[in-house]
């Protein structure tokens, strides 16, 4: 599991890689928290390399989504979502509420 955050002009781009299960979801939560604590509420998650995204990771995502959208100050958007994870997020009712983009360029450009 790897997480890397790039601070862009209009948003943070957080690239995720590997497994995000109950053991590693806290790392995702910390990365999202770090962006929000730094005052960045516009976040793109690059999901290209994500192999697994369990309910604990979904909860971290939803928590950040709620917090970023509070006071209309931002949003969390997803880019390059693998099909099997797209399916799980759809079953969980997360999509289409969270916006998904085909590329990180369009996701970042949407802010």
């Amino acid at each position: 599991m790897e997480i890397s955050t790039v601070n862009l002009k209009h948003c943070d781009l957080i690239a995720l890689s590997g497994r995000f299960d109950s053991a590693t979801a806290p790392d995702l939560e910390r990365a999202l928290r770090a962006s929000m604590d730094a005052g960045t509420y516009r976040i793109v998650l690059d999901m290209t390399q994500v192999e697994f995204f369990g309910s604990a990771a979904i909860r971290s995502l939803v928590q950040a989504y709620k917090e970023c959208r509070r006071f209309n100050r931002g949003d969390v958007r997803l880019a390059c979502l693998p099909e099997h994870i797209h399916n799980v997020l759809q079953i969980a009712g997360i999509l289409p509420l969270i916006q998904v983009f085909d590329t990180t360029v369009t996701a970042v450009g949407s802010f």
Binding site: R59, V62, I91, A92, I94
Partner: peptide, 24 residues
């Protein structure tokens, strides 16, 4: 069981794991 039709702002935090197991 979570109500997955609710807006995310109104969702309760628990029950998602069991719900996914049953659906998958």
């Amino acid at each position: 069981e979570p109500d997955v039709s609710l807006p995310l702002e109104q969702r309760s935090i628990g029950g998602l794991g069991l719900y996914l197991m049953r659906r998958l």
